[in-house]
Amino acid sequence: MAEHYSSFERGGRRWLWQRLTAVFLIGVLAFHFLLLHFANHAANITFAGTQARMSQISYFATMWLFLVTATFHGVNGVYNALVNQGIDGTQKNAVKWVLIAAGLLLIAQGTRVALAMNGFL
């Protein structure tokens, strides 16, 4: 019988957070598709409409949480896929810090755009 293998540490929090973020992302993606693809068709989406939606604190917070959650989920997933492929030592440490930096830059830029859409910038 094959041995169970996972890059997640047993009892670790990264495994739990990967699953929790997946559940959150499924819910927010459903909301996104219903609102922006079924209730409003792509041809009806305008810059002014986006600004109006982003000016609502609940929508803004949901979209910002979506950004942070998706970034964590993606970065954590890529990191663990690479660990599963066998990187270790210096490579593993370098990849970890490059992915953390890329994730933080993505969140910073996404936050800038969200704040601009909200009218704060």
Score class of each variant (00 low, 15 high):
His73Pro: 02
Thr62Gln: 05
Ala39Phe: 03
Val28Met: 14
Thr71Ile: 13
Ser55Cys: 03
Asn40Arg: 09
Gln56His: 12
Gly89Trp: 04
Ile57Thr: 15
Val95Cys: 00
Asn84Val: 12
Asn118Lys: 11
Leu104Phe: 13
His37Tyr: 12
Leu121Ile: 10
Thr111Phe: 10
Trp17Ile: 01
Val83Leu: 14
Thr62Cys: 06
Trp64Tyr: 04
Thr21Leu: 06
Ser7Cys: 07
Gln51Met: 12
Leu121Met: 09
Leu25Ile: 12
His4Ile: 15
Lys96Val: 00
Thr69Ser: 15
Arg14Leu: 11
Phe60Gln: 11
Ala22Lys: 02
Val98Gln: 07
Asn80Leu: 03
Met63Ile: 07
Asn40Met: 05
Gln91Ile: 05
Trp64Phe: 09
Phe24Ala: 07
Ile87Gln: 02
Val75Met: 15
Leu65Met: 14
Asn44Val: 02
Trp15Glu: 12
Gln91Thr: 09
Val83His: 03
Ala116Gln: 14
Ala102Arg: 01
Gly27Cys: 11
Ala2Asp: 06
Gly11Lys: 04
Arg19Gly: 01
Asn44Gln: 13
Ala114Val: 08
Met1Arg: 08
Leu99Glu: 08
Val83Thr: 03
Thr50Lys: 13
Gly74Met: 12
Gly49His: 02
Leu29Asn: 14
Asn118Ser: 06
Phe24Ser: 02
His73Arg: 05
Ser55Lys: 11
Leu34Gln: 07
Asn76Ile: 07
Ala52Asn: 00
Asn44Ile: 01
Lys96His: 08
Thr90Asn: 11
Val78Trp: 05
Asn80Arg: 05
Gln85Lys: 11
Val23Lys: 02
Trp17Met: 10
Lys92His: 05
Tyr79Phe: 14
Leu106Met: 10
Val28Trp: 13
Gln109Thr: 06
Gln109Tyr: 13
Arg14Thr: 14
Ala39Leu: 04
Asn80Met: 08
Met1Leu: 05
Thr111Cys: 08
Asn40Ala: 02
Leu16Trp: 11
Ala114Lys: 06
Thr21Glu: 02
Ala116Lys: 10
Phe38Glu: 09
Gly89His: 05
Val78Cys: 09
Gln91Lys: 04
Phe33Glu: 08
Tyr59Glu: 06
Gly110Gln: 07
Arg13Ile: 07
Gly89Ser: 04
Ala114Tyr: 14
Thr71Asn: 14
His41Phe: 10
Ala108Glu: 06
Ala108Met: 10
Gly89Ala: 05
Thr62Ser: 07
Phe8Gln: 09
Phe66Cys: 09
Ser6Leu: 01
Tyr5His: 15
Val68Pro: 04
Ala70Glu: 11
Gly27Ser: 08
Ala116Cys: 08
Thr69Glu: 07
Gly74Ser: 13
Ala81Leu: 14
Ala43Pro: 06
His37Ser: 14
Glu3Thr: 08
Leu20Trp: 10
Asn118His: 09
Val98Thr: 10
Ser58Pro: 00
Asp88Ile: 01
Leu25Asp: 03
Leu99Cys: 03
Asn80Thr: 02
Leu121Gly: 12
Gly86Ala: 06
Ala61Leu: 03
Phe72Thr: 14
Asn44Phe: 04
